[in-house]
Design a protein around this nucleic acid. Sequence first.
RNA 1: GCCGUCGUGGCGGAAUUGGUAGACGCGCUGGAUUCAAAAUCCAGUUCCCUCGGGAGUGCGGGUUCGAUUCCCGCCGACGGUACCA
Length: 969
Amino acid sequence: MKYDPRKLDKKWQQVWRTNNTYKTGTDPSKPKCYVLDMFPYPSGSGLHVGHPLGYIASDIYARFKRQTGHNVLHPMGFDAFGLPAEQYAIQSGVHPTVSTKDNTDRYREQMHRLALSFDWEREVNTSDPKYYKWTQYIFGLLFEHYYDLDADKPKSVNDLRAAFAAKGSSAVNAAAGEEIEFSAADWNAMSAREQSDTLMNYRLAYRSTSYVNWCEELGTVLANDQIKDGRSERGNFPVVQRPMEQWSLRITAYADRLLNDLQTVGFSEGLKAQQSNWIGKSIGAQAFFDIEGHDEKLEVFTTRPDTIFGTTFMVLAPEHDLVEQLTTADQKEEIDQYLEYVGTRSELDRQAENKVSGAFTGSYCINPLSGARAPIYIAEYVLKDYGTGAIMAVPSDDDRDKRFAEHFGLDIIDVVDKSDYPGATLKDKVGKLINSDFLNGMEVPEAIKAATKKLEELGRGKQQVNFRIRDLVFSRQRYWGEPFPIIYDEDGVPHLIDLNDLPVSLPPMEDFRPISGESPLARAKDWLHPAPGMTRETDTMPATAGSAWYYLRYMDPQNGETFASEEAMDYWQDVDLYVGGAEHAVAHLLYSRLWHKFLYDLGKVPTSEPYKKLVNQGMIGGPICYIHLAGMVTEDGQRHQLWVSSDLAEGDEISIDGIGSGRIILDEATGRRLNPLRYTTEVTVDKNQTFRIYRSQVEDAQQADHPDASYFRTILQQGETFAWRQDEEGSDYIELSFEQGKMSKRKYNAVNPDDICDRYGADCFRMYEMFLGPVEQGKPWSTSGIDGVFRFLRRFWSMFHTEDHDWNVSNDEVTKEEMKVLHTLIKKVTADIDELAHNTCVSAFMVATNDLIKLKCNKRSVLEPMVQLLAPFAPAMTDELWQLLGHDTSVHLSGWPASDDKWLVEDSKTYPVAFNGKTRFTLDLPADADKKAVEEMVMANEQTAPYLDGKTVRKVIVVPGRMVNIVVG
RNA sequence: GCCGUCGUGGCGGAAUUGGUAGACGCGCUGGAUUCAAAAUCCAGUUCCCUCGGGAGUGCGGGUUCGAUUCCCGCCGACGGUACCA
């Protein structure tokens, strides 16, 4: 038979489905192996070639583990709640339930097409009420618990209630939003609502006020990445910071453990560093500054209490509670103006800003140690959520404080003498203290301790541990998410809905448009009030909710009694290998680890960490085509010639980074405006490379059967409106520029894997994606090169066949040479798959195949093990060959060949001989020659002499089995 | 800005612990086969060169007999930066 990948794909994919080849049960006789992919958000555009990179890598690993005798859990599902489905619904009128089903169906088919060995009976979908029932249940557990710092464990809020009633707030040491004090009598005198509000200060899932990016015109909260220059990316409307009552999760209670346990998991060092920096633990001091003319004290957190004598001013976050009080009448206008400016700034802008800005409140505070008077400013570089939202500024020892002081003409007092540490930067905590009273002469670490101690003695502060990580805001004012299992009574006290009454299902609705910041659910009148006086929570959960625990559900996906049975979790334990995008390296993983640790504390899961080993796959980029528009007019009336992707335009409006926003100049003659221009053909480009396409080329392409004909047709049409320019000779051309970017539908650069599979087969596509390079590395997509892999598959197939495509495998005795090729391959592939180095496996297969074809080898005892080795990579072709070799069960359930080093021993070794580190020639020497023998043979060789001519041999370095280097001079 | 990752031929990339830089593949060049094409096969392919050799793994330093690999300082690209998923 001729190699026909499409036919084989069709045949074998059907067989695997019919036979349920990849179905997994618990099997105590085999070691378990849980191989997990980050499940996708099923977007409307389907899978693109970037997605499968990780799926294929983990699939190869899973298949390898199956063949080496493991019971492998390799599931797939969908992270199906999310904003895009809702926005699509608003635009198109298609309900998210419908579009989500369409999209998941499509994804599932695409994954089948890629021959991924998932056990589809275990599929989960976060938007399925049978699934989100348990998301709501776990949320309920978080709501019902607080974190006891003495026990270092969560405990029931009921215990907290009892303790407060008996002894007041002093009875417990709990993770809390703020430190509050009350007696048992105070507590008992509180109304139900007041008690409830007080408990919110402790619950692990709680309601509080947090700031959001509010866009009045869109009536909705926006993510930072939906905001450009203080305006909404969509529609270009103003965005302001606005406080809002929202649910949050108290991840800060777990900060220390999330940090410490990083040492126990097999994540890359870079990833651990990212998580650790995100958690951002720092040890420093809390200090209180008196404020002139006010009773309040100003609390600051500093990691450098030693530099307190250098504090020449204070800076508050613009949102700090005291700002209003501290602003004097004279400074009010300036402060108000500044607050207005800050209101338009996203958090990202504020942190990224290089330029100094701020305003003086008019008030002063008193340094608790030096007694010096320091002016109080507000500035956007101080963030409300970090530390206390206030800093003591030490311009002599901090870059940003220094720039601020220089800008506003404030004093700078040197307090650390670094002259003993040449090369030390401002950030290094080294030096001797000067100008600092009792700290003078101390080294920095000593001074930090002394200053902290002094603050403590004076009752003006103490040592404090601070975390950068903030509690996770867990509310969304959206339709397409999990409803909260919460109901409010007439007093506004939230009550948890009983497990028996879960899930709280999303009410059927047709209109999800956000109005005035309320969730669309507030308009589901029948749903909203399940009983008189009772009102449901109308916010929904963010997409992080469903993805925080999905790996547990795969272990026991159908369970109606609990989120997963103890037996299933005892067997599967945790995830052995987790593969997913680097973009999830912090957020998803931390939240997931939080949920897991919480469940572990309650004794509901058997391990303290969910993921043993994690690999981040790189992103596959595609070219983004930019078209030169005729120009645009910005608000200030300036005309610009711009390079801009046409699909960024919404109506006549367009906004561009660094330029601002404006109106597209329409073609005056026709008044037509452009439509998005798509360009999906491959080009390999450098960033901002530009080139011209001439009208004549485009027209010629229309005649010929050019692959880009339809694209060029669009250029022709669009070009009439805006794009043709004339070169020196008067020929029309259009200029395009390209850059590499993340594949997405919006950028018209997504490539569909189906197209590749149709042309080359799934085996080839899988191997090609692996051949592209290490999984962890990002790379641009290009199909050029896939022919090489296709050629390999055909050559591999040809080893089993005659030139006329007849089956031709012999049972002849194998030679030593053939065995060497085979066992080199077994050794390499076995080692590399384990490391997920699939790219070098593919090379090894090519090398072995080339060698065996040269040897004209068609022997069963060589080819049969090779089929097993190749099976994880090319599942369809190998199952066919396995069948042709006479087996009646799948190669994927067969074994794995063992390598035997006896075939790999060499008699001689080719030594490179170098002079002063430069290799001059090679020499074949016996493999067992020792150092001395090698040196003698090299020195005696006639090739050596010319390089020694007239020079002295200073040293001869011999690394047995490796190389020889002769130092002459 | 901050945190993390990565920079090797025309291109994707390879190179145990520091030990022959460029495996394997694409592309390109030449040849064989063919009426012709496709397919296949063979040979060559880092750059420069006066054909002796010289340079070379983003740039500039350092350690070493020897550096793609280790150290210091830059530059660039990508990812994250808390409501995209």
